[in-house]
């Protein structure tokens, strides 16, 4: 039912929402002043979202870089606690997530509930990884000499994330959680047409204990902003998942731009130059964390 066909006896006039960006723990409007209408699967108005610009992306990178040392340097236990707290807040907003996923992705109520459950569970799964990574991925190297030699994973830095276009919450969680669980900070370009769950996630992040700047969410046109993230020299890595089905984007061009400072690149799924959105309901492995982890090896002599 179109919202503008109301009678006087109908329900109240709803308060229409205009959402903002989430940068450095704050909710600024786009510096461009632009916004765009977010519609549901059937073309009905859902909300206005900020249409982020390259300058917003730039600000987000600055915020992510500023947040990086403390987040990377926090104890793994602390990061796990913080991320688990996010899951708790998400659980509290379950109904809102379900409604938004349902509206955004055109799912049934039951299906949307399943997706939200999976998304929260996935967040919890990643939260539990923070203090396992070093033991699973690191260890002593038995070098042929009198040296203590140890390798351990470290976050690579600021990671640009093109969130999946279709899977607006489960896909989003599947690409954001591994980045920050492994100690990186993220600049996330949300699903262009389905940004509402991401916006709600930003509210969950802001009301949990995640330090400002660890996750920055930019809504807007993927094709407009993604190249600026891909070419940004203070971004260490980029996940191109959201290049699949994004209008006006060839992921190869983004990878080409990323080569300028040798970003670590996670290519979108698919064969050849095609990009497809994978089935996010499948159980993840460690690859989205290891992609954004460096191995640091430290040597020290053993002597008396």
């Amino acid at each position: 039912m179109p919202t503008n066909q109301r009678t006087a006896t109908d329900a109240r006039v709803d308060v229409r929402k205009t959402y903002k960006l989430y940068i450095g723990g704050k909710f600024p409007r786009s510096e461009s002043g632009r916004s765009y209408e977010v519609l549901d699967g059937r073309g009905r108005f859902l909300a206005n979202a900020s249409q982020g610009s390259r300058k917003d992306a730039r600000d987000a990178v600055v915020a992510a870089r500023a947040a990086f040392p403390k987040w990377a340097g926090a104890t793994a236990y602390n990061r796990g606690q913080v991320l688990y707290r996010v899951a708790e807040v998400m659980e509290g907003r379950r109904a809102q997530f379900v409604a938004e996923v349902r509206a955004s992705e055109g799912l049934t109520e039951r299906r949307a509930e399943a997706v939200v459950n999976a998304a929260i569970d996935r967040w919890v799964w990643y939260a539990g990884w923070t203090d396992k990574l070093a033991q699973v991925l690191g260890g002593l190297n038995p070098v042929a000499g009198p040296y203590f030699d140890i390798s351990a994973p470290e976050p690579t830095g600021v990671v640009g994330v093109l969130a999946p276009q279709r899977s607006s919450l489960l896909g989003l969680v599947s690409v954001v959680a591994p980045v920050i669980a492994s100690g990186n900070t993220a600049v996330v370009l949300t699903s262009e047409l389905r940004p509402l769950p991401a916006i709600t996630l930003s509210e969950a992040l802001a009301t949990s204990d995640v330090p400002g700047g660890v996750v920055n969410l930019i809504t807007g046109r993927t094709a407009e902003v993604a190249p600026w993230i891909a070419s940004h020299r203070d971004v260490n890595a980029i996940d191109l998942a959201g290049a699949a089905e994004a209008e006006g984007i060839a992921w190869g061009d983004l990878e080409l731009a990323a080569a300028e400072n040798l970003k670590r690149v996670v290519r979108p799924a698919g064969e050849g130059s095609d990009a497809v959105e994978p089935d996010w309901t499948r159980t993840p492995d460690m690859s989205r964390m290891t992609a954004f982890l460096e191995t640091k090896t430290v040597w020290h002599p053993k002597g008396r």
């Binding site: 190297n141 038995p142 070098v143 042929a144 000499g145 040296y147 030699d149 390798s151 690579t156 260490n236 400072n261 040798l262 460096e294 191995t295 640091k296 090896t297 430290v298 040597w299 020290h300 002599p301």
Partner: peptide
């Protein structure tokens, strides 16, 4: 940096991962 040599330098071993950060 991918390799930190403390109180030594330029040591290599097949068991020890080698490689860099950034560029």
């Amino acid at each position: 940096a991918g390799v930190v040599w403390a109180n030594t330098f330029n040591k290599f071993d097949p068991t020890s991962p080698f490689g860099g950060y950034k560029e």
